Simulated scan of single mutants.
Amino acid sequence: MTKTKSPLRRFTDKLFGGLNMSWVKVIIFAVAAAVVTTVFLVVPVFDGTSFHEMGVYFESWVLFAVIIMSNCSKPLESALKTFVFFLISQPLIYLFQVPFSYQGWGLFGYYRFWFILTLCTFPAAFVGWFIRKRNWLSLLILSPVIVLLTVSGIGYLTKTINNFPDHILAAVFCFGQTALYLYAFFEDWKKSFTGLIPVVVTAAVIMFNSNSVDISLYTDLPGSPSFSDAAVIELGNPEFGEASITDAENGEIYIHMKRQGTTYLTVLDGEKVYSYSAEVKDINGVKQIEITPR
């Protein structure tokens, strides 16, 4: 007795393997994607939203590529059609924006990056075609994509948490893609479960390193004290970074912070001791060093 497939399973089977991806459809798909992306980029209402990111980052284009690859009959066909899709869509996005941008034709200066990515789509799509096999090799091929989507999703989710509901749709879109691929290509729960490992590991690494920063600052110390040439400066916890005096007479220092949080900053000048707190703060979404007297 044949098991009846769920509506969702029938939908994913159609989307990833049941479409006739002819050359005409690939070209129409490329032009349509370019038009939609251009609208999101040039219409002011989309500025700073999840929709605007379609023309800046890669998440939507991963989905488009997977749809094309999974609906080709051979690896070479997958490579050629995916390559042509990007070869048409990416320059068209810049071309369509020219009348609306103060940079005019200068916009094509940004195309170099996407052209390099377009060249990379040929070998990537050749290998990517094997996700159609829905086996362990398919899972291995999808793993880098899952990692990239997880990194992007966490990045968007961080923006959402800091300024709800900023980029919540982009976060859902990234995590949703991961869930969609694991469901669509792997009916075996063992493969789907294994596919979650890159998600968990990536999230754990990001969370473990969430306190890491790399910020440097040249600044006057509060109160503009004047030090002798013998003065020395140190951070209370060296793991936070390092500091040095750049202009003793004017109380100017250089500080490099490697971790978020608060540590002590002390200047020893003979019998005089100057104490400060050095803190990495998130101000309007930008990490900054703030030094205050203790």
Rank of each mutant, 00 (worst) to 15 (best):
M1A: 14
K3Y: 04
T4I: 10
K5A: 02
K5H: 07
S6R: 03
P7C: 00
L8E: 01
L8D: 00
T12P: 00
G17F: 10
G17H: 12
W23N: 14
W23S: 14
V24E: 15
V24T: 12
K25W: 14
V26W: 04
V26N: 05
A30P: 08
A30T: 07
V31L: 10
A32D: 01
A33W: 10
A34E: 04
A34M: 02
V35N: 03
V36E: 03
T38P: 08
L41P: 09
V45L: 05
F46C: 11
D47P: 11
G48N: 07
E53F: 11
M54H: 13
V56F: 12
F58I: 15
V62D: 08
L63G: 06
L63D: 06
I68F: 00
S70M: 14
N71E: 08
S73R: 15
K74M: 14
S78E: 09
S78D: 10
L80H: 11
L80D: 10
F83N: 03
F83L: 04
L87T: 06
S89Y: 04
Q90N: 14
P91D: 03
I93Y: 04
L95N: 02
L95D: 03
F100Y: 11
Y102C: 12
Y102T: 15
G109N: 15
Y111W: 10
Y111Q: 11
F113P: 10
L117D: 03
C120I: 13
T121M: 05
T121R: 05
P123F: 05
F130E: 13
I131T: 09
K133Y: 10
K133N: 13
L137V: 15
S138A: 14
L140F: 14
I141F: 13
I146F: 15
I146S: 04
V147N: 03
L148N: 14
L149M: 05
L149R: 03
L149Q: 07
L157T: 12
I161K: 15
N163V: 13
N163Y: 15
F164N: 11
D166N: 11
I168K: 13
A170E: 05
F173E: 00
C174I: 00
T178N: 11
L180G: 02
Y183W: 08
W189R: 15
K190V: 08
V201M: 05
T202P: 05
A204P: 01
V205A: 04
I206M: 08
M207P: 08
M207E: 13
F208D: 06
N209H: 06
S210V: 10
S212F: 10
S216T: 09
T219L: 04
T219P: 00
D220C: 02
D220W: 00
L221V: 01
G223P: 02
P225M: 02
A231P: 07
I233H: 01
I233R: 07
E234A: 15
E234V: 14
E234C: 13
G236D: 09
N237H: 08
P238E: 07
D247I: 00
A248C: 05
E249R: 01
I255T: 08
I255R: 02
H256Q: 00
M257A: 01
M257Y: 06
K258R: 11
R259L: 12
G261N: 04
T262Q: 11
Y264K: 15
Y264I: 14
L268R: 09
K272V: 09
K272E: 13
Y274K: 02
A278L: 04
A278N: 07
G285V: 12
V286L: 05
K287T: 01
I289H: 07
I289L: 10
I291V: 06
T292M: 08
